[in-house]
């Protein structure tokens, strides 16, 4: 904290908070905060920018968009992309069907079980993917072992920690009991209550959970490589292309796409300020 403290005293004059008691209690770190944020932004942008510049070059080392057009024709890329897409869709569907009704039910009827859920959904962090996949491969029957969807089943487990927390926070922000009672007393069954009342209210939580699941599936290398499936990350790491720029470019495009997707969702969604949950 020491460096922040320093910045504090350097920037003594700051506009007061609206609810200030009259004293300039917020002699805040506009200067210090700006410095920290700029350094952090540089730290996160420089490697990305450098990698982009590295991949968007022609043979002479000049900027060129030509590598973009080579992606689609790179050997194995399309099938890897297709495999990852299938896995992503399967993972998202299983995750949502498994987690959404469970978390809603636990919030409504078994509040004590939330403690258990919290601990259980932390466990995938404790079992590293490299260890988990070994056990999964040993334990699964042959027909499942030969299927690409074994990976999707395992990814559901990996996605649990953030999917659960996202849903839990989303449900915590709703007046769940009132919503459900209103819907039930108007005559809808459980199925349509979940689908037509709760899911629309949970939109932002569901969307961010889905995007993070997507990012997980499109980035997961450990399990896929040990299960011998050439998903996109495995292709990026091991593809026998004679042009490493293409692989780097694909990696960067996916980082950029997930980031923009999630940030877009977040900024579009104005319905629920996070502040409303606190205080």
């Amino acid at each position: 904290m020491a460096s922040l403290e320093l910045e504090y005293s350097l920037a003594p004059t700051e506009p007061m908070e609206p609810f200030s008691t009259g004293r300039p209690t917020k002699r805040r770190i506009r200067g210090g905060r700006g410095l920290v944020l700029v350094i952090a932004a540089l730290y996160f942008i420089i490697p990305f920018y450098a990698a982009m510049q590295f991949s968007l070059q022609d043979i002479q080392g000049h900027f060129s968009l030509q590598p973009l057009s080579q992606i689609l024709t790179a050997p194995g890329f399309v099938s890897a992309l297709w495999l990852s897409t299938q896995l992503a869709v399967a993972t998202m569907m299983i995750t949502l069907v498994l987690m959404v009704p469970t978390v809603i039910y636990v919030h409504l009827r078994m509040p004590r079980f939330r403690r258990v859920m919290e601990v259980v959904t932390m466990l995938p962090i404790v079992i590293p993917p490299i260890v988990l996949i070994v056990g999964v491969l040993q334990a699964s029957p042959l027909w499942l072992k030969n299927s690409q969807y074994l990976l999707a089943l395992a990814y559901v487990v990996l996605a649990m920690p953030f999917v659960y927390r996202s849903l839990d926070a989303g449900l915590g922000a709703l007046d769940l009991k009132t919503l459900v009672e209103a819907s039930r007393s108007l005559g809808s069954g459980w199925f349509s209550t979940i689908l037509r009342v709760l899911v629309p209210n949970l939109r932002s939580a569901l969307l961010s959970a889905s995007v993070l699941t997507l990012a997980l599936v499109f980035g997961e290398f450990t399990m896929a490589s040990l299960d011998n499936w050439t998903t996109l990350p495995v292709w990026i790491a091991l593809a026998p292309t004679n042009n490493p720029r293409i692989n780097t470019l694909v990696a960067m495009i996916f980082l950029l796409a997930t980031c923009l997707l999630l940030m877009g969702l977040v900024s579009l969604d104005r319905s629920k300020s996070r502040h409303s949950r606190r205080s």
Binding site: F44, F162, L212, G219, E220, F221, T222, V234, A237, A251
Partner: peptide, 17 residues
């Protein structure tokens, strides 16, 4: 949102970057 993506951005893509 960016932190959520970057915190999960381990692996091959990060190494290549």
């Amino acid at each position: 949102a960016a932190s959520g993506v970057l915190a999960n951005f381990g692996g091959v893509n990060l190494a290549f970057m």
